[in-house]
Write a protein that binds this DNA or RNA. Sequence first.
DNA 1: ACCGGGATGTTCT
DNA 2: GAACATCCCGGTG
Length: 191
Amino acid sequence: MPPSLSREFYQRDPRVVAPDLLNKVLVRGARRARIVEVEAYCGSDDAGSHAFRGPTTRNATMFGPAGHLYVYFTYGMHWCANAVMGDGLAVLLRAAAPIAGLDLMYAARLKARRERDLLSGPAKLCQGFDITTEHDGADLVTGRGGGIRIVDDGVAPPPDPANGVRIGLAPGKGEEQPWRWWVPGDPNVSR
DNA sequence: ACCGGGATGTTCT
DNA sequence: GAACATCCCGGTG
């Protein structure tokens, strides 16, 4: 198994970590997928972040140690997952390209008909990996709390990642900030 | 292909 | 009571 990203990897500005997470591999048991789309959320400086107004019950994990997973429930039926940098800072994992364990992903995503439907959005990614609120706080470095890790299999981030505004933010919530990055041309990037 | 709306319930005002 | 870091389905062109 390739090595997990170190605790120190996560202890940086989310706008630096985010593009660096592209092409890293999310692993859970037999399931593996290459991260192809991410967004940075910048804590108390960022009106679009759940951490903007300080710690609450929901966002407590974002204020804990770096390298853990912050999972939140939204729109009454979906979960989304972030890698935490600490101090309310985080990177949303928006989409990934399936590598292995696709049978398990299809079983978890009954509506998906094609490979590019499995993990091509933040809630799809969680559904495909069976990540729910019980994995909030899981340790991505040691795997403690659900066996979910992010590892480096030797594929470098793209030298020229695509970059643009974040998805789904209302006006006044930092919607103009270009804090989304993706792997150019990858079919698993969300629409 | 594109577009509009419904589902569904937690969180915070 | 409104907003919500979304997804899916069914309409139309």
